Amino acid sequence: MAMAALRREGRRLLLSPITPNPSSAARSAMSISPEQSAPIGLRSISTQVVRNRMKSVKNIQKITKAMKMVAASKLRAVQVRTENSRGLWQPFTALLGDTPSVDVKKNVIVTITSDKGLCGGINSTSVKVSKSLFKVTSGPEKETKYVILGEKGKVQLIRDSKGSIEMTVTELQKNPVNYTQISVLADDILKNVEFDALRIVFNKFHSVVAFIPTVSTVLSPEVVERESEAGGKLGDLDSYEIEGGETKSEVLQNLAEFQFSCVLYNAALENACSELGARMSAMDSSSRNAGEMLDRLTLSYNRTRQASITTELIEIISGASALTG
């Protein structure tokens, strides 16, 4: 055993001078294993990072496509209900009129937004219109308050208009919007908020990729009667005679309450329909952007991997040439 070990050691010592002054590439190849080489390790980390990024982008793309499909499935049903609801408030507009330029002392801006995000700039548009309307209706002897429907509008308006917010309502769209729910909400607003004019700000649905910021005005019975007595004709109301023993004030009170609930119901449906259309468009754009990013990452991954393979081949060939030369 000892003699065999000595013979092996002597054979190693005799063979070692055969390769005088090996090149630096050969020395590095013989002395450092591929697992311990820093450049190869860095390349492996680089490809792993790109691979993880590609996996994340693929997962995001799956989520955006799923959200687009969900919004598309909900849009059709809401769109039909929205188109049917437009026939509720149009007779009131013909009867009482819609006078956004009326000058009153107490204005209440009812801003309708969504509870969820990822739907483009639909909520920002409603907030911008509300802020502009707040500046127009404010004055030394005037009072303007906000009634906010939706979490997104609440978050944006509470930053600089916290003292002007009279009432907030969230999770309105947790369940499908129905007239019973909206009528209870409208009655709650009328009981808790003093107003001369209610200005409802919402996004009217035009198409899947377009919505129109809209403001509807509902006047209080006192203002309607005052404007009518002052000679200003509000719709076709003055063309009808009141029968049944009710006074004009009582009729206007009932009409104003019913008008507000109908307009609010239509506005909530219009905004919900616009939200789904905007979410479809936003998720479609996100899916396309994710696909483009995935293409760029795939190209980068292939280039990095090819460069790593080429470098390793060059090192192997250089080491083999140094050993045989």
Rank of each mutant, 00 (worst) to 15 (best):
M3E: 08
A5L: 13
R8F: 09
G10N: 15
L14A: 12
L15I: 10
S16L: 13
P20R: 09
P22T: 06
S28L: 15
E35S: 12
E35M: 09
G41C: 05
S46Q: 10
S46E: 10
T47F: 01
V49D: 05
V50A: 10
R51E: 13
N52L: 14
R53N: 10
K58F: 07
I60S: 15
I63E: 12
I63M: 13
Q79E: 06
T82S: 07
E83R: 10
R86C: 06
R86I: 03
W89C: 04
F92N: 00
A94Y: 11
T111K: 05
G117D: 14
L118C: 08
I122G: 01
N123A: 06
K131I: 15
S132W: 04
T137L: 04
Y146T: 00
I148F: 00
L149G: 03
E151K: 14
V155D: 14
L157G: 00
R159S: 10
S161Q: 11
K162V: 09
I165T: 00
M167P: 01
L172F: 04
N175T: 13
P176A: 00
P176K: 01
P176Y: 01
V177S: 04
A186I: 01
L190A: 07
E194P: 00
A197H: 01
I200Y: 02
I200A: 13
F202H: 06
K204I: 03
I212P: 04
V215P: 00
S220I: 00
S228N: 09
A230N: 15
D236I: 10
E241Q: 12
E241C: 03
G244L: 07
G245P: 03
E246P: 01
V251R: 10
N254M: 11
Q259C: 04
A267P: 01
E275M: 12
L276C: 02
A278M: 05
M280Y: 09
M283V: 03
D284I: 03
S286F: 13
R288D: 08
N289R: 08
E292S: 12
D295C: 12
D295L: 10
L297R: 06
S300T: 15
S300A: 12
S300Y: 14
Y301K: 07
T304A: 14
Q306D: 15
T310D: 14
T310R: 12
I314A: 11
E315W: 09
S318P: 04
T324P: 03
